[in-house]
């Protein structure tokens, strides 16, 4: 079995979507998550707070440097993700297709490095 990251991206403005508008997506995603949790594929899911809430910590040098904001400025940001376990890419793509349908966004599928 291999672990895969199923990630969803969006521009900062996505976080401004009014609740009424986002409600059907929340519900579809919630339903998808509930079903996924009953399977062996389930590892983790989480939706992130908007990118402006990010802080970057650099502890590689002698002085610790903490800066406000994400590591990189990009047009779109990681909005949330699933970690799943699947036998191969075909199985992962099948779950990703359902995830994409539920959340209404494209899903990037990336394998984790083996142990």
């Amino acid at each position: 079995m291999t672990q895969y990251l199923l990630s969803v991206h969006g521009p900062s403005s996505v976080w401004d979507t009014p609740l009424e508008e986002a409600q059907p997506m929340y519900e579809a995603t919630g339903k998808f998550n509930d079903e996924l949790k009953t399977t062996d594929a389930w590892v983790f899911v989480g939706g992130l707070e908007r990118p402006e809430t990010a802080t970057t910590v650099d502890g590689t040098g002698n002085d610790v440097i903490v800066t406000d904001g994400p590591y990189m400025e990009t047009k779109e940001y990681l909005g949330g993700f699933w970690v799943i376990e699947a036998a191969d890419l075909d199985a992962a793509l099948k779950i990703a297709a359902e995830a994409s349908k539920a959340c209404g966004g494209k899903v990037e599928v990336r394998p984790f490095a083996g142990e």
Binding site: T2, A87, D88, L89, D90, V109, R110, P111
Partner: peptide, 9 residues
Amino acid sequence: AAHIPYRVP
């Protein structure tokens, strides 16, 4: 790396 299977889908 992505484990694309050797299988008839």
